[in-house]
Every structure is written in C-alpha cells, then in structure tokens.
Design a protein around this nucleic acid. Structure first.
Lengths: 340, 340
DNA sequence: TTGTAGGCGTTATCAG
DNA sequence: CTGATAACGCCTACAA
C-alpha cells in the first residue's frame, strides 16, 4: 500500500507572510483585495503566494466569518429522469453566480433519511437548503428544516410555511388547450394522469378554463383520468375513438400517455395531426423529440425552477424577505413539433 | 424586509459543558463516543445536549482534524440525459456509506471553468475529486487536479496518470453480438456511431471478436459507421436492406440509431425480431423501454461506475493505493426486451 | 498603510 | 476518568 497522495505541504497565511517579510494581516488583505495595501507590499505578497502555490483555506475562513457559502440540495430521487438533472443544473448555475456551492444529497424519499440528511447539512452550517422532489406533490419535510432558510422546489406544504417554486400546471393546461383551439380544433378530449395529483388536477383546470373561455360546453365524457403510462393512454384513446363523435384533438396528461395515444391512432389508421391533433405534457426529450411525428408538448421548466429556487434562497440569505406565502408558479412553455 | 431567519442561538460545546457542569473536553468525548467517560457524566452531558439542542459544528471540527469528509464531483454536463444523474446517484450512495458528502459542480466542459472549479474545491479542502464526463472520451483535466486524490469517471488520459473508471465497451459489443448469435442469427450487421469515439471503436472490436470466435468471416460491408442519431440509423439501414443478401440481425451503436433502424424496417414491412433482430446500446430508458417492440440493448453501467469511482477514491483517501494504472472497465449488462 | 492581539468551536496533548 | 491549555488558519478589532 502506498501512502495517500495528500497535499504534502499545506501553505498557510503565515508561511506567505514569512516569505514576503510582512505580517499575516497584510497577506490576508492582499488575498481579500483590500485596497489599503501599498503596491510595493502587494507585489511582494503576490509573488510569495505564487512561489508557494498558496491557496486560502476556506474552512478556516468560514469558521471565522460564519459564512460557509454552502447550500444543501435535498432531493428524493435522482437519475431516473432528466428532471432532477435539470433542477440541479439550474440551481447550480445560479449558485455559482453568487459564489455558492451545492451539497447534493438524495434521500430516496425516506423520511428518516431526509431528517438525517437535513441534520447533517445543518451541522455543516449550510447557509440554506433547497428541498426538491422529482414530481410536483405535497410533502412533509423534516422538522429541523425550519432551522435554516429553506425553499421547496417542485413540492409544497399546505400551510405555505416555506416558500415554494412550482410549475404552473394550470397555465400549462390552459395554454395547451388554447393552442389546439387556435389550430381550429373544436372537439378536444383530455386523457389525464392520475386523479389527486397536483399535475393532473392543475392541467385539467386549465383545460376547463380554456374551453369555457372559448364558449365551448365541456363534454364530461371527453375528460378521462387514468395513470401516467403509455398502456393506459392506449386503452383510453381506444375508448374515446370508438365513440359516436370522434374528437379532433387529444390533450394528454403527459408524454407517455401521448405515446399510447399515437399507438391507438396508428391502429385505426388515423393520421396525426391531420385527423387528430395530439399534445403532451412534460417534454421528455427522449420521447417527444424522437417520436414520429414529433410530439408538441408543454415543457416542465425544471431548469428555470432550479434557478429561481436558488435565487429566492440567496435573496433570503442576503437579508431579504423569506419569500414565504403563495408558491411561485413558473410558466410551462409550449414546445411546438409536428403533432398539432 | 424581514430579518434573515438564521439560527438564533448557536449552541457550542462550551454552552453544553457549562450546563452539564463538566469540561468542554468531556462533552467532546461524549459527542465522539469516546469510551473513557463515566456513565454518570455521560448522562448529564447527553441531557444537556438534548436540552440545548446542541449540534456539533463540523466546520470547526474539520478545521481541527484536517478532514472535511467532502468530495468534489466535477462534471462537464448535467441534466440532458439520465447518464449524469445515475453517475451522481451511484457516487452519492457510496459516499453516504463512508460519511462523505458530495460537492456537485458542472462546468459546461469549459477548460477554464474546470480549472477554476478544481481550485475552488481545493480551497475548500475536499478530500478527493471525481472528474466525470457525460460520455466516454479522452480528457485533459486541469493541472491542479494533481493536488488531491482524484478519479476519472467515464473518461481517461492517455498516460493513465489518474485512475479511471470506464464502461467496458468491448465486452458490451462482444456480448451483444454473442447474444444475436445465440438467437441463431448468422448474418449480423453493425450500424455503428462515429469513428474515433471510444464507444464506437470498443463496441466494434467486441463485434469483430465475437464473429471471429464463432468462425464467421467478417463481411466488411456489414460494418458501417455514421453518427449517433436516428436519421443516420434510418438511412444506413435502408442501404443495408437493399443489398443482395439481407442481414438477419443488426447491432446498433446506440439506441437512437436502433430507432432509425426500426423505422427503416417498418417502411419495408419487415418484422422485428422475426425478419431482422435488432439490438441497441446505452439502454436509454425513455427510448428502449417504450419502443415497439421493446428494444433489447446493452446498458451503460453509470450507477455502478459512479459507485466504483467513489469506492476507489475512498480507498485512496483511507491510505490505500491510488488505483492508478489500467482503467477499471465495468461490464455493460444485457437488457433483454422483445427486439431479439 | 501596517501590525498585534485575540478568538471562532473543536480536538490533541498532557497533566492530574 | 477528567480537565486545563494550546493549536488549527483565518479574520476582526484595535492600535501604531
């Protein structure tokens, strides 16, 4: 076994001071870009820093300043979809701009692990925590989360005791339906996801609203619920298509459902979008961009949500308001492809 | 503007010691589970800790012990595919088991940002760094990476001066081809990705090897290169299918190419797998699991690679060997679906 | 402009 | 088993 390859000599402020023939405080000043240093000394110090390859020890600095510039990101799941990745990227980019670094933790959704994780982050004196989920839902975050600035991301608590950033499902449903209306469709069905999910309920609300505004009576038989999977989309579409009056457009609760609808339409030799227009939700790249025809869909703004959550948190940390109150709803943009 | 919601009273060892009527060192011993404390005092201290809701300050501890239990994870891209997510999850789970936390940084692949990021992590005294890429390739990591234990993940440097964890492309190509042979196929084509990529070259090597071992002469016209996209797979498949002797199986450089092949086969009314078996590579869930028929493919072991990289790094940190030398190749498992 | 003294919260050392 | 004291590397406060 060879020895671990640690940094052999850890250069400190003192070493630099010694080498440059100044006090540690002067070195500290140079490192922190304090103006009150003569050019002469500054040059000397900078040279010594260069020579010794000195790097400030942020651990020590943080202990003194009480600012770790660390943010905890607690997620339930990671990796199964691109969602968590986009959230992470959005949060990380915003953090970077504020000189913050992200401690990434995933918990598998286990409440005990969640509590343990938050405690760990608290012990490390993170300046704030983003508590994120993989899909829009209500959560019950660990008690100890209240001990530091926190923002919920893609999730919420009923009493709004934490600020939250959510996708605007209702706007998304509304805009999807409006889009179909604008394309001249009048008999618009909706094959939704599972009842009770904020995504499903919000999207349906938007759908109803758009139809109402267009002066179209809602045919309740055209709004059906199921789950979020392709098979369900397939069978629900089959039922809808064998009715007396075929819909000329189908708004799907997500992209997977839309794939099932595509299958059902293909089976009946109906063309998309000529015979029936189809619009999805979620903009899962792997599905929507590579289906034939390409699936028009509403994108979940995960990157933007991650960014906003971080900004909200930073604002709070910097002394601004906590952002508590009504959740911030981030619009879901329409992604036009060929299915409408 | 309301005041920031910081922890109001930060309880320290001293406070606990005062409350329990013991020295700080005794409290420290209790916190660190040192056996050399009488039950009597231990109880007192534990009660005080409970009462005051004391949490050890890891920043201070780390400054004293020189161990931050922090690992930097530097990635070029995050979020576009599930790859980075799986790597992150694998690394995080392994880190968790060793009491390590992950500092996640993505750089966009920009060398300056990479160098800056590594410096930042070094200043924070991470105990090691995992340098990861989104797809298997050669890299040129920043100079300063040599200042701490490091592992390359899904990437490598030509002189092996860092340990590396890579997918075993060759084994993958071999096993994919073997699988087709075992299903009775004899005229097996390969529509590969782009020339020069480790993924493409390794998979082709495995393909050749399997054919050779089976005593089948390689028909060079059956091994074609293109790019990694569906369109290319479509047109390459068209060419192959209009030749005099139709292949009875096609091994695709990745799953997107396989989708193009599906399209080409459908166009000619050929059935998968009856007329032509198709196998992919990468196991992109969104594609492979939801195509019709489901696509048999070789999975990239990102989760396992993330885990192994972390284990390798931890082993080094704990004083073991650095793991430098020939890269560690992680097998790509076969995922059976309906296309073969 | 520059330097000195002291302390952040913890653990290591060593004495009792 | 227990505790006083020093030290980790840096920054704040104050003094020169």
């Amino acid at each position: 076994m060879s020895k671990p390859a640690r940094i052999t000599t850890v250069t400190t402020l003192k070493d630099v001071a010694l080498a440059a023939g100044v006090s540690t405080k002067t070195v500290s000043r140079v490192v922190n870009n304090d103006r009150h240093v003569s050019d002469n000394l500054r040059q000397k110090v900078l040279r010594a820093i260069e020579d010794l390859d000195y790097r400030p020890n942020l651990v020590a600095r943080h202990m003194r300043t009480k600012k770790t510039r660390l943010i905890g990101l607690v997620t339930d799941e990671i990796g199964t979809t691109s969602f968590s990745g986009n959230i992470l990227r959005g949060a990380q980019e915003a953090a970077w701009q504020h000189g913050l670094l992200l401690l990434a933790c995933h918990t598998g959704g286990n409440p005990e692990t969640e509590a343990h994780t938050v405690d760990l982050l608290l012990e490390r004196h993170v300046e704030g925590i983003i508590f994120a989920t993989m899909y829009h839902r209500e959560v019950c975050p660990p008690e100890s989360l209240k001990n530091c600035p926190a923002v919920l991301l893609d999730c919420f608590v009923s009493d709004n005791r934490y600020p939250a950033v959510l996708p605007d499902e209702c706007q998304g449903g509304y805009q999807a339906t409006r889009h179909l209306l604008q394309r001249g469709r009048r008999r618009i069905a909706m094959i939704n996801g599972k009842r009770g999910f904020p995504g499903a309920e919000g999207r349906a609300a938007g759908y109803r609203q758009a139809l109402a505004e267009a002066g179209l009576p809602l045919d309740e038989s055209l709004l059906v619920y199921g789950d979020w999977w392709q098979e369900q989309g397939f069978s629900q579409a089959q039922s809808l298509l064998q009715g007396p009056e075929r819909p000329d457009a189908i708004f799907c609760g997500n992209d997977r459902i839309a794939m099932g609808v595509f299958d059902a339409l293909r089976e009946r030799n109906l063309q998309v979008p000529r015979d029936v227009a189809v619009i999805g939700f979620d903009n899962m790249e792997m599905i929507a961009a590579h289906s034939r025809p390409g699936l028009t869909t509403m994108a979940l703004p995960h990157h933007e949500m991650g960014r906003l959550a971080m900004e909200l948190l930073n604002h709070h940390i910097e002394g601004g308001s906590s952002g508590k109150g009504e959740p911030l709803r981030v619009p879901c943009p329409l992604v036009r492809r060929e299915s409408t």
